[in-house]
Design a protein around this nucleic acid. Structure first.
Lengths: 359, 359
DNA sequence: CAAATTTGCTAAAACGCTTGATCACGGTTC
DNA sequence: GAACCGTGATCAAGCGTTTTAGCAAATTTG
């Protein structure tokens, strides 16, 4: 048993200097109480600014002084224990580092959580089921208020069983299982918006280079494209929809086919394809947006903002996804599980689009 | 006061079904003990697999069954309270979402922390001092084992005062203040490695497009460039060092000057400049690596791996930085504060470099 | 067969905090 | 002068664990 040498009387040293080596035990409520010559209850009341409590100004001051003097910090664990409800929200992500996407989800979640007095407990799982289970277990042991289960690209997902032991919200993914609340980007609206950028500038023959790999984004973005055309009274032309692997190579490789379509504008499934397409078009001596207007999707800053010319695109609202996830978890936002709440994808207009050259 | 309806006798329902609405209070040790007909002490001993404890196999089994039956999860808060030391490591970052960089630091920190049984508590501050202080306060209240203070680009930093109240390690930044342990990338070695890629392929006249803005990276990468040349017996030529703003525009804009230097290869301060330079060179009808070999720095995947041709570059070891930070915090790695520990920057060779054309 | 030892388990204190109940006391009211 | 009140503080229980000391029963020892 370790005996505190200053068990009685005033503590001798003020705000722990915190040298390199052994860090002193944190100051407790009791020590403050002792220093101020009051009970721990009183200190607690002062610390928490309880309106209902009656504390003499003189006493309050004495306590406040002692707190400052000793450098007291409440022990959140102890507080949680007694209050019964923790101030944690867990966030499990399948790929924190691969893209900036997950980072934005974290960012949004953290800001929103913070706003409501919650701290974020995060775990990266690399999509590994075992890690995932461990991560969730950890969060459950910390009695998190709830868990945000997020994926770095929009997709359907199977819920780890243990997720059910807590409140949870799916972020950027969804599941048909009952009670699975979810927030996802509104791909259809995004696709519509992307196409509308082009339409707005007067383009009528607009190609869409879709992805080859199946995903909600693939269907949604195509659907949006169709809707936008239809709204303008333009007949959907199947032959204007190409498909390629959704990366630079894919975009580059699609150039040739695209040029056979005799279009003035193209909407790419994502910015990376657009980046490849830029290379392809340039190789053909074509200029953007003069010879071909281009819009992308995703708004990957590093790419879109810095291509030459900067790429008009549609933003994936990852930050909002994270924030909305938190709100939904806390019951501040409606949810009709298991149908996901869709988040608006804003457009970002840069210089890769202008009116088509007159014929 | 809320009274548990099954305060005595066997609990009636098994593993909480966790419906949508009201979530039942988590199962406690006491409930397990009751269900198994033993004391809480016994359950605790079973749960923690204490070697020193003697528990009859039959009893152990009964407890295990009860645990499974009830879906018991230990309360980490309570554990922390009694054990006195928490299993948290705090990570404060100034920009979680701006680049994938911070994400990688988080990733590395989280993996390493996990490995040692710690969970990561993160906070994004956007470089805002007030938020920073709040974030650190939060972490201190959760009695974190220590705090990783990280920045998204390598730089000197002022320590928030409250950081001193905990163990801490600076990640990707440093401070001259005493006791400030830090891990940073080895910019000099990185610069040397970048240059060596070019030298190795036989280039002798190598330009360096440095950044205009002051930073440890600016000095370090130049220093490395000089060292590599010197090691090869090549005289450092001041005129081969250009400066530009470290983004695409900068790289693009530097093309003209570069071409006056009559070099066969160029090493860019970062990948984004290289990306701009690609555009500039292409406009001049020059090919990479045929007419000009190019290496970058940072290894920003989205860019470097997907440029045409893919860019050889040097990797900023953010993942390692995060991991090393955790190890240093836990005392598993030496530190000679306040001189930062330097982490190796590995090269990533792709196709933007080959031997210079014979004259 | 008494003493000593081992086995299996429990009682209870402690961790740092919150909070409803309670108390002492000087001042009002009737 | 008794009953009452408001004020300012304290008491003590309890949150869910861990852990040490200790107890009763079973087993071994001499």
């Amino acid at each position: 048993m370790i005996s505190q040498e200053n068990g009685s009387g005033m503590p001798s040293s003020a705000a722990a200097p915190a040298k390199q080596g052994h860090r002193p035990q944190p100051v407790t409520l009791r020590q403050v109480a002792q220093a101020a010559g009051v009970s721990t209850a009183t200190v607690s009341l002062v610390v928490n600014k309880k309106k209902s409590a009656r504390i003499a100004d003189e006493t309050r001051q004495r306590v406040l002084d002692a707190i400052r003097e000793l450098g007291y910090r409440p022990n959140a664990m102890a507080q949680t224990l007694v209050s019964g409800s923790s101030r944690f929200i867990g966030l499990v992500a399948d790929a924190i580092a691969t893209t900036p996407f997950a980072g934005q989800i974290i960012h949004g979640a953290q800001d929103e959580a913070w706003k409501h007095g919650y701290a974020l407990l995060i775990a990266n799982t690399d999509g590994n089921r075992e890690l995932e289970t461990d991560a969730i277990a950890m969060m459950l042991e910390y009695k998190v208020r709830g868990i945000l289960y997020s994926t770095w690209f929009h997709r359907a997902t199977d819920l780890p069983a243990s997720l059910r032991e807590s409140d949870f919200v799916l972020v950027n993914c969804f599941s048909a299982e009952p009670g699975a609340r979810a927030v996802v980007p509104d791909e259809v609206q995004g696709g519509r918006s992307a196409t509308e950028i082009l339409l707005k500038h007067g383009h009528r023959r607009i190609a869409f280079i879709n992805a080859t790999i199946p995903a909600p984004a693939k269907d949604g973005r195509l659907q949006g494209y169709k809707e936008a055309l239809e709204a303008e009274g333009i007949l959907f032309d199947e032959s204007l929809v190409l498909e390629a692997y959704p990366d630079q190579e894919g975009g580059y490789g699609a150039t040739e086919e695209l040029l056979k379509r005799d279009v003035t504008a193209v909407y790419c499934y994502n910015d990376r394809m657009a980046m490849g397409l830029y290379d392809g078009l340039r190789e053909q001596g074509l200029s953007i947006p003069g010879d071909m207007a281009v819009v992308g999707f995703d708004n990957q800053e590093v790419i879109a903002a810095h291509l030459r010319p900067p790429l008009s695109t549609v933003s994936l609202p990852h930050y909002e996804l994270g924030a909305a996830g938190v709100r939904m978890l806390l019951g501040l936002e409606e949810a009709q599980a298991p149908v996901p709440t869709k988040i608006y994808c804003p457009t970002v207009e840069r210089n890769s689009v202008r009116a088509p050259a007159p014929v």
